[in-house]
């Protein structure tokens, strides 16, 4: 699993390094608002990502994928059953679907200048606020629901008790 993590991190670093090789578009990280000193603006969204889409999207999706991979590292190898992979894979796929919808609606807006409001926010922002935020909560549902199966089994509990007992015995003897 650590090799996968290393691969993802290197991919992210490479995406940034390659993006840095070219000329940074104007306003890539915003600029001051012309009327209000405490605010910044983004300006033309399409222009400021010109030539950076591939690197930006690699960084974006690699970040989303890294999160469940880190979660998996915390689970003992023997507890990573088929059910575990199915559940984690399913939630990851759902999370990635919302991440992809966010990009789809954002690009549509940049191309047409039009969007629709969903629950008070423009469509791409609503995907971020409700889709990406909400769907990742399912990782927590797995944690609660399958705690005894994946996270901390009765055998694990017995092993911890044995370790603590051994330590206490050692301290008493010392």
């Amino acid at each position: 699993m650590v090799k996968w993590i290393l691969g993802i991190l290197v991919l992210m670093a490479l995406a940034i390094a390659i993006a840095m090789m070219g000329q940074a578009p104007e306003m890539v990280s915003g600029g001051p608002h012309p009327d209000y000193s405490g605010m910044s603006i983004g300006g033309d969204g399409a222009a400021r990502l010109q030539g950076l889409w591939v690197e930006g999207l690699i960084l974006y999706f690699a970040t989303f994928i890294s999160m469940p991979v880190f979660c998996v590292l915390g689970i003992a190898k023997r507890n990573r059953s088929q059910l575990f992979w199915t559940l984690m894979g399913g939630v990851t796929a759902l999370n990635l679907m919302f991440a992809a919808l966010l990009i789809y609606f954002y690009i549509s807006f940049l191309n047409t200048g039009e969007t629709f409001l969903l629950l008070g926010f423009p469509a791409p922002t609503a995907m971020m606020m409700f889709g990406c935020w909400g769907s990742a909560f399912l990782f927590t549902v797995i944690f609660i629901w399958k705690f005894d199966t994946f996270i901390f089994t009765p055998e694990d509990e017995a092993a911890v008790e044995a370790l603590v007992k051994a330590r206490e015995q050692q301290s008493a003897e010392a």
Partner: peptide, 15 residues
């Protein structure tokens, strides 16, 4: 006022 501000990456941008 500035559409990017209310778009998902705000004025700071994607990166």
């Amino acid at each position: 006022d500035d559409a990017e501000a209310i778009m998902p990456f705000g004025s700071l941008g994607l990166f």
